Amino acid sequence: MKLSFLEPLYKQSGPFASVYLDTSRDAALEDPDAAVRLRWRRLRDALVSEGADRESVTAVAGTVGSDTDVPGTHGQAVFTAHGRLALLDELPAPPARDTAHFGTLPDTMPLIVQHAPGIPYLAVHVHYGGRHSTDATGTVRIEAEAGAWPLTKVTPGHRLDEEIPVADWARAAGEVGRELEGHARRIDVETVVVAGDVWARGILINRLPAALRGQVTTVAGAGESEPGRALLEHRLESLFEGRMAAHDRALLDAFLAERARDGAFTEGLAPTVSALQRGKVKALFLNDHPESPLRLWVGPKPGQLALAEQELRSYGIREVSEERADTALARALVGTRAELIVVPEQELRPSEGVGVLLRYADPASGK
């Protein structure tokens, strides 16, 4: 997964307030907005106890709960610095628990995890309930959405919504297919999920460009699409559960191949830190352990991280602080434009939960 969406955040200077909050409006509650405000007050107290300045707290307060137009279960990630909003991101699922942190670095790992697996896809729903003949009356309606799963749950992708007379469907399906191909190319789609009437969708699939037709997966049923949520959301949930994006899978396969021949790879926290210091990391594989006690020392720049405070001091770095290891690693990856793959332990369990695919192996050391 590329982390370029975090670059604007790291271009700003800290300290940062980082807040993760469940902002779902449960219809069963008498006053759902009051419930959100109550959850925020608890986090506000936590920020103040960690030394957050009044301006940063006020900036968060003016943002949390602003997603009243987002239906269903979801959350918000809010980052502020020096009294200004630094980044706001809608979460496709409520955070595992509401949290607030004030410190030198933003706490971005929970946000990164919610962006995974980041599968680029195209969802198509072909609506038709009439007679299966091109001389029938009525219309075929096409709904389509291109986006990255699971973010389209709360941030809709590009949508297409057209109605075509049944008599014109056989001819128009080819034009629709070419339009869909254009949307698919823009996001380098890896899966095309098609639902709806078997006859009408069959005509569309047969007229898709060959490359796109080879990526089609058909699903039975569709369910009602809730306004503001992803098209075919429930079908996509089942289809993509436990799945990695093809790009991430290719990087994982490359890591496993390098490890098998003791090539351009490393694992464990100390070797990973060393590789990041030298800008050698192509991709980092991380088991998500929010409860991990591992810590690192960091300086003002992304590549300034170490296992011990004295190492940074020895380089003449004066401004140092101790941070969660995953927080420090995330900043270093963004700063060096390396990729991060949050990988399930059943797929890979590297030493200390972290492994690295190197950009190149050092001939002198073999790494």
Score class of each variant (00 low, 15 high):
53 D>C: 12
340 L>G: 01
261 R>Y: 07
160 L>D: 03
82 H>V: 02
53 D>L: 12
344 P>T: 04
165 P>H: 10
313 R>N: 10
133 S>R: 14
118 G>L: 08
286 L>K: 13
52 A>P: 04
10 Y>S: 11
194 V>W: 02
293 P>T: 07
168 D>M: 10
315 Y>G: 13
28 A>G: 10
156 P>A: 12
190 E>M: 04
4 S>G: 09
36 V>T: 08
104 T>D: 10
218 T>L: 03
20 Y>K: 04
132 H>T: 13
130 G>R: 03
105 L>P: 05
202 G>V: 04
272 T>S: 14
335 G>M: 01
225 S>F: 00
271 P>F: 08
64 V>C: 03
193 V>Q: 05
225 S>I: 05
353 G>W: 01
145 E>R: 00
241 E>M: 05
288 D>M: 00
322 E>S: 11
31 D>F: 12
265 F>M: 09
78 V>C: 06
268 G>R: 07
211 A>L: 11
263 G>W: 05
320 V>S: 02
245 A>T: 06
139 T>L: 10
287 N>R: 10
365 S>A: 15
94 P>L: 03
9 L>R: 01
219 V>S: 00
57 V>G: 05
261 R>T: 09
177 G>E: 09
328 A>D: 09
28 A>T: 13
54 R>I: 06
288 D>T: 00
355 G>K: 02
91 L>S: 02
